[in-house]
Simulated assay, not measured.
Amino acid sequence: MEKPACLIVYTSMSGNTEEIANDIAKGINEAGAAVQIKDILQADPADLEAYDGILLGTYTWDDGNLPDEFLDFYEDMDTLRLQGKPAAVFGSCDSYYEHHGGAVDILIEKLTELGANIILDGLKIDLTPTAEEKEQCIQYGKSFVNDEWGPFSCFN
C-alpha cells in the first residue's frame, strides 16, 4: 500500500504554531505517512483536495478570531470538495482570552461544512509548547495516521 500523503497548512506570528506544525509532522512521519508543510502564504486552498489527509493550524487573533493572513484562504475554501477527507485542526492560543482557541473552532466548523471528516479533537496549545506539549503534538500527528482501527485506516 502506498503511504498516505498529508498536508499541513499553518500560519504563525510568533513561531508557536509553526513549532506545533513541525512536531505534528514529526509524528505523522514516525507513523509512516508522508507529510508536506506549507505556510498559509505559500498554500492554495485547492492544495487541500490533492492530499489524503489535511491539517490546518493557526494562532487565534484577539478574542477568538482567525488572523488576517488566514482570511483569504478561509474564504477561498468555499469551492472545495472535501467529502470524507480526514482532517484535523490545531493552534496556539492564549488562555487570557474568553474564546480560548476560537480560530481552531472556526476552522473545524469550516472543514465540517465542506464535508471533511474531523478525526481528532482540535489541539489547542497555550502559547509556546512545553516539552510535554511538544510530545503531545507528536502524538497528535501519530494519532492522525494511526487510529484505533489500525494503521492508515482513516485513509482507506
Rank of each mutant, 00 (worst) to 15 (best):
E2M: 09
P4R: 08
A5W: 01
C6N: 09
C6K: 04
I8Y: 04
V9C: 15
Y10K: 03
T11C: 13
S14H: 13
G15T: 04
N16C: 06
E19P: 01
E19F: 01
A21R: 05
N22G: 01
I24T: 02
G27N: 00
G27L: 00
N29I: 06
N29A: 03
A31W: 07
G32E: 02
A33S: 12
V35A: 03
K38P: 03
K38V: 05
K38S: 09
I40M: 10
I40D: 04
Q42I: 00
A43M: 11
A43V: 09
D44G: 02
D44M: 09
P45L: 08
A46W: 07
A46T: 14
A46P: 01
D47W: 05
Y51M: 11
G53R: 09
I54P: 02
I54D: 05
L55Q: 08
T58K: 05
W61E: 15
G64K: 09
L66H: 10
L66K: 12
L66N: 08
P67Q: 09
D68F: 12
E69D: 15
L71Y: 00
L71M: 09
D72R: 00
F73E: 13
E75P: 00
M77L: 14
D78H: 09
T79H: 12
L80S: 14
R81E: 15
L82G: 08
L82T: 11
K85L: 15
K85P: 04
V89Q: 10
F90V: 11
F90E: 09
G91V: 01
C93F: 02
S95A: 13
Y96A: 02
Y97S: 05
Y97T: 04
E98I: 05
H99I: 10
H99N: 14
H100K: 08
G101W: 02
G102P: 00
A103L: 05
V104C: 14
I106D: 03
L107A: 11
L107S: 11
I108P: 04
E109A: 12
E109D: 11
K110N: 11
K110Y: 10
K110C: 11
L111M: 11
E113N: 10
E113G: 01
A116G: 13
N117R: 15
I118D: 12
I119N: 07
L120K: 13
L120D: 10
G122C: 06
D126P: 02
D126I: 01
L127I: 08
L127C: 08
L127Q: 11
L127Y: 06
T128Y: 03
T128A: 08
T128H: 05
P129C: 03
P129L: 02
A131M: 07
A131E: 13
K134D: 02
Q136C: 00
Y140F: 15
S143W: 04
N146L: 05
D147Q: 13
E148S: 12
W149I: 02
W149H: 12
P151F: 10
P151R: 15
P151D: 07
F152E: 04
F152N: 08
S153L: 01
C154R: 10
N156C: 06
